[in-house]
Amino acid sequence: MEPILDWLQITVLALIQGLTEFLPISSSGHLVLVPQLFDWPDQGLAFDVAVHVGTLTAVVLYFRKDIWLMSRDWTSSLITRQPTSNSRLAWWVIFATIPAVAFGFIINNGIEESLRNPLIIAATTIGFGVLLWWSDIKGEKVRDEYSLSFKDIMIIGFAQALALIPGTSRSGITITAALMIGLTPQAAARFSFLLSIPIILGAGLLKLKDLLESTAPVQWEAMIGGALISFISAYIVIALFLKWINQIGMAPFALYRFALGALLIYLFI
Rank of each mutant, 00 (worst) to 15 (best):
I79H: 14
A90N: 08
A100S: 05
L56N: 13
I67F: 12
P99W: 00
V93P: 08
W74K: 08
S114R: 04
G104H: 05
W92S: 08
V34G: 03
F47N: 01
I111V: 15
L69S: 14
I126E: 02
G129S: 01
N86C: 14
D73Y: 06
P99V: 00
S77R: 09
I79F: 13
G44N: 07
G127K: 00
T80C: 12
N109D: 15
F103N: 05
S27N: 04
T55H: 09
R116I: 03
F128E: 10
T84P: 00
T125V: 07
W91R: 13
S85D: 13
G44Q: 07
T75N: 07
H52N: 11
V60S: 00
A100W: 01
R81L: 14
W74F: 14
R81H: 15
F63E: 04
I79E: 13
A123K: 08
L61I: 08
S114D: 12
S85E: 14
V130I: 15
F63S: 09
R116Y: 11
A122H: 11
D48A: 08
T75D: 04
A50C: 06
I98Y: 03
L115D: 15
V60I: 09
I126R: 04
A90F: 12
I98T: 01
P35T: 02
P83N: 04
L45N: 05
H52S: 11
L78Y: 06
W74C: 12
P99I: 00
L37Y: 12
L69G: 07
W40C: 06
W68F: 15
S87V: 10
H30K: 04
I106G: 09
V60E: 00
P118R: 02
S87A: 14
D39V: 06
A46K: 03
L33C: 02
L119I: 10
F38C: 13
W92K: 09
I98R: 06
E113W: 05
L69H: 13
L33T: 00
L69P: 02
N86F: 15
L33P: 00
I126G: 04
S77W: 12
W40E: 08
S85F: 11
S76Q: 10
D39R: 09
N109Y: 11
L119W: 07
W74Q: 09
R116M: 10
P35Y: 01
S28R: 00
L37G: 11
V49W: 03
S114I: 06
T125Y: 03
R116P: 02
L89T: 03
F63G: 11
V53Q: 08
W91I: 08
I111N: 10
A58L: 02
